[in-house]
Design a protein around this nucleic acid. Structure first.
Lengths: 252, 252
DNA sequence: CAGTGGTCTAGACCACCGG
DNA sequence: CGGTGGTCTAGACCACTGT
């Protein structure tokens, strides 16, 4: 026997992982294992303070995370309660196609149709906020595959000069364009604006996606932003309606 | 002359509005008026502490808000910087159709096709997490109008018993269903899961939306959650692709 | 009223970055 | 190295809820 604290005193004060993160992980586990049941109040903050041997600030930091993730909800003057578990949790982060497919349990793939610099069309210049001098952008057109079957067409435009380009080899080896941009140029995405609409397949699109002309397609246009909130990519994505649905969680 | 502090000391310590909220509002204004220019570093936290006469905790609380809203970005060891302004800011909250249309500068309207209790189909029972005993739900089918022209069809299912129902009159007078639910039942929405896909119009849908059969439609299925994270509504929304686009901002 | 979450203070030390 | 944001403490008082 070392200690005999009532239940939990498992926070390592010397760990590189911050205490509030350790604590939110521990509490999330209790919720996911249903040690704490839905709509049940969790111990008050001042009790968690002594249970985990941290300050109230740290307790609140940990709880804030779980509230924003939807695991807990608070009622002022009443307490903090366990939110009922949802089946599909947290399919809500910006991610690459490669990762998106893995989450869905599908095997991602691609066929590169085009890779090279092109003159930027007007509306793309706008989305990428290009300055006057720049007139060429890198364009990458790919068929996207899920379990080796075509699921969509991606056309991406990147504001990279000719000197800083990407080869087909590099793209094939990385799979995810975002992973390549991070390792090669230290370009890290943090956010994106997306516009979604329904459309129907043109003859060419139908041929590429193995569909009949006029079949429904989901069109997504995404502008991706780097850490400094600068546009780093504009992509036009066309998905087969029968093979791709888009999920999003929105808060008030 | 009353005081002669360098610039800003305009936080009212007696206000009912918390200091961190007052402070984030003041700073947001500086960014929107471009008093602080994009990518420029803002004063360090310890300086803001004395400038606004608050503690560092409060400074950080204010900055956290602006970071999450996308007005600022931080670089560890470097500083906190102004994010470039985006034209289309914050169209990202869960809201009613009525409010959605207003934001888009259109005049919302509706034609009620059906309002009454029905036996709940299986997949809707699931989405609403109905218990065994409940077998009827309130169903509301409406044509949605923008500037008096049909833009979509909404079919909503609400887990309300027959005794707690809604009349056509009430719905017409409130316009927004959510506003009515809040005022009548104290049901407040906080979150929703949405699934989007492309489809084509059936004969009936085409007739209702004044389209040709086979025209592209954006199909959105939404499950709305109350404060306690209980499902309070399931809606199937079908929008004319030529009149409705969906915008979303996602973070990593 | 007692108990809960919400706000706030004045400090401290750590981790990271650039010169 | 000095300056920045990141984490953390031990308090305090306020606002809201139920009994």
């Amino acid at each position: 026997m070392t200690t005999h604290s009532p239940k939990a005193a498992r926070i390592d004060p010397f760990s590189a992982v911050p205490k509030y993160r350790q604590m939110s992980d521990l509490l999330r586990e209790k919720i996911e294992r249903e040690t704490w049941k839905p709509h049940q109040p969790i111990p008050p903050e001042r009790e968690l303070e002594t249970l985990y041997n941290v300050s109230r600030t740290t307790v609140r930091q940990a709880l804030d995370i779980l509230v924003s993730e939807g695991f807990l909800y608070r009622k002022h003057g009443r307490g903090t309660f366990v939110a009922p578990l949802k089946l599909q949790h947290n399919l809500n982060h910006l991610t690459s196609f490669t990762n998106d497919m893995k989450i869905r349990g599908l095997s991602p793939g691609q066929r590169i149709l085009h890779l090279g610099h092109v003159e930027a069309p007007g509306h793309i210049r706008e989305q990428l906020a290009l300055s006057e001098e720049v007139d060429e952008v890198l364009c990458i057109e790919r068929i996207r595959l899920a379990n080796a079957e075509p699921i969509g067409i991606h056309v991406a435009y990147l504001p990279l000069p000719r000197e800083q380009s990407i080869s087909e080899e590099e793209l094939k080896n990385h799979g995810s364009l975002y992973a390549l941009l991070e390792s090669k140029f230290n370009l890290i995405y943090t956010e994106a604006d997306e516009t979604l609409e329904a459309t129907t397949a043109t003859e060419r699109e139908a041929a590429l996606l193995d569909l009949r002309e006029g079949s429904p397609l989901l069109l997504i246009e995404r502008t991706t932003f780097s850490q400094e909130k600068r546009p780093m990519e504009f992509v036009k994505m066309l998905y087969r309606a029968d093979r791709y649905k888009y999920h999003v969680n929105i808060k008030r």
